Amino acid sequence: MIGLLEVLDRDEHVRHYLPIASWPVRAGRAIDNDLVIDDPHIAPHHFQVDADESGVFVLVGDTVNGLRVGGKRFDAGQRIAVGDTPLRLAVGESHLCLRLASHPVQAELPLHTPHSLWHAAWPTLAAFVLVLAALLFSTWLDTDPDEWTRALGSTLVAALTAGLAWCAGWSLLSKIFTRRSHFWWHVRVLLLGVLAIDVAGAATRLIAFSLSLPVVSDFSFVLSYAIAAAMLYFHVLGVEPRHPARMRAVAVGIFLAGTALSLWFNLQNRDQLGEELYMNHLFPPALRLARPVDSDRFVRGLAPLQSRLDEKAKKRDAGGDGPGGDED
C-alpha cells in the first residue's frame, strides 16, 4: 500500500478510506471510480490522483464545483502537487485527506483520561458551587427578608430549568453534527461563562468605587459581551470543530454587533454611550482608594451642568408652544 484516501466526518474522524496500491486513483459519484462518494455536489468523475516523474499530484476532472485545498479553489484541468505532508481536499460538501506512505505520521496525542470520577467531575462541581453561591448572594441582596425563601426557590428553579434547556439544546446540535452529545462540555462552558460574567461585573464595580472611576462600571457591559461571545465560541466548537478560525470570526462579529447596538440604544435613551446614569453601587469605605473631594470642590464641579440643564429646559419649553400648548 502506497497511500490512503480518507473521507472525513465533520469532527475530523475518518468515516471510511480507500487503500491505494497503484496509480492512478479516481474519485467521484460514478460507480466505476475507485472511491465512490455519495455527494450531489460531486461530479461523476471529480478528480484523480496520479504520479509522474515530478511526484504525486491531484488532477481536477470535469466538474463545475472544482475542489479546494487550503481555502484555494482549483477548477477542471488544474493540478495540485502533493507535498511532504498529508493533503486536505474539500470536494463538494465532503472533506478528504490524501496520505502517502512517505508522509510522516503525527506523534501520538496523550489521552486525557481522569484517574477517577472525582477527577473528572470536580471542575464542573466547583464551578456549579461558585455559581450557586453567587446566585444565593445576589438573591439575598435583592430580596426582603420575609420574601427571601420564596424568591430563592423560584430563582433556583428558573436558573436550573434555563441552564438545562440551554445545555440540552447545544448537546442535541452536537449529537446531530458530530455524533457525540458533549453534554458536560456545554455544562462547563455555561458555568464558567456565567461565573466569569459575575466576577467581571463585581470587579468593574469595585474598581469604579475604589478609584472613583464610574466609567469603568458604566461600560462593564462591553466586558460581559466579550465573555458571552467567548461562551458562544466554545459552545459552537462542540458542534463544528473543523473550522475554529471561522467560528472565532463569527463570535467576534457578534460581540462587535452587540456592543454597537448597546451603545446606540444607550445614546438614544440616555443621551450617553454608557449604561449607568450614576454609580449606584457602594462598598465598605475601607475599600475606597481615591482621595475624598470636599463639598466646595464638588459644588464647583457641578457648574458645567448649568448650561446643559438650561438648554434642555429651553427645548422642553419650545416643545410646549405648539397648538394647544398655551392655555392662557
Score class of each variant (00 low, 15 high):
residue 196 A to E: 07
residue 53 E to A: 15
residue 72 K to C: 08
residue 236 V to N: 00
residue 144 D to R: 14
residue 141 L to T: 11
residue 122 W to E: 06
residue 55 G to V: 06
residue 320 G to R: 11
residue 176 I to C: 03
residue 48 Q to F: 09
residue 166 W to A: 14
residue 44 P to N: 06
residue 238 G to W: 02
residue 80 I to M: 09
residue 20 I to W: 00
residue 307 S to Y: 12
residue 248 R to G: 03
residue 47 F to E: 01
residue 203 A to W: 02
residue 180 R to M: 08
residue 219 F to G: 07
residue 253 G to M: 10
residue 249 A to P: 00
residue 30 A to F: 03
residue 3 G to L: 01
residue 40 P to Y: 08
residue 29 R to C: 05
residue 240 E to F: 15
residue 89 L to G: 02
residue 201 G to L: 10
residue 54 S to T: 13
residue 127 A to T: 02
residue 80 I to G: 01
residue 95 H to Y: 07
residue 169 G to D: 09
residue 2 I to W: 03
residue 132 L to Y: 14
residue 240 E to D: 14
residue 253 G to L: 07
residue 23 W to L: 05
residue 293 V to G: 09
residue 182 H to L: 13
residue 1 M to G: 12
residue 269 N to Q: 15
residue 153 G to R: 12
residue 144 D to K: 12
residue 326 D to F: 12
residue 122 W to F: 13
residue 171 S to I: 02
residue 117 L to R: 08
residue 7 V to G: 00
residue 169 G to I: 12
residue 195 L to Y: 05
residue 222 V to T: 13
residue 206 L to M: 12
residue 295 S to K: 07
residue 153 G to S: 14
residue 157 V to A: 11
residue 255 F to G: 08
residue 245 A to I: 02
residue 220 S to W: 00
residue 291 R to W: 08
residue 255 F to W: 13
residue 84 D to W: 08
residue 283 F to I: 12
residue 113 T to M: 11
residue 117 L to C: 03
residue 299 V to K: 03
residue 213 L to E: 04
residue 78 Q to N: 06
residue 12 E to D: 15
residue 208 A to G: 15
residue 66 G to C: 04
residue 22 S to L: 04
residue 252 V to N: 01
residue 201 G to R: 10
residue 136 L to S: 05
residue 283 F to E: 09
residue 153 G to L: 11
residue 136 L to H: 05
residue 104 P to D: 10
residue 218 D to C: 06
residue 44 P to A: 11
residue 37 I to E: 05
residue 190 L to N: 09
residue 2 I to E: 05
residue 135 L to M: 15
residue 127 A to H: 01
residue 48 Q to S: 11
residue 24 P to H: 14
residue 244 P to N: 03
residue 310 D to P: 00
residue 6 E to A: 13
residue 109 L to H: 06
residue 156 L to V: 15
residue 111 L to V: 14
residue 36 V to R: 11
residue 261 L to E: 10
residue 161 T to P: 00
residue 205 R to P: 00
residue 195 L to N: 12
residue 263 L to N: 04
residue 18 L to D: 06
residue 39 D to Q: 05
residue 215 V to K: 09
residue 28 G to C: 08
residue 230 A to F: 09
residue 250 V to D: 04
residue 67 L to S: 03
residue 217 S to C: 11
residue 263 L to E: 05
residue 18 L to A: 07
residue 255 F to K: 00
residue 296 D to H: 07
residue 295 S to T: 12
residue 71 G to W: 01
residue 209 F to M: 11
residue 162 A to I: 11
residue 237 L to S: 14
residue 166 W to E: 13
residue 20 I to M: 14
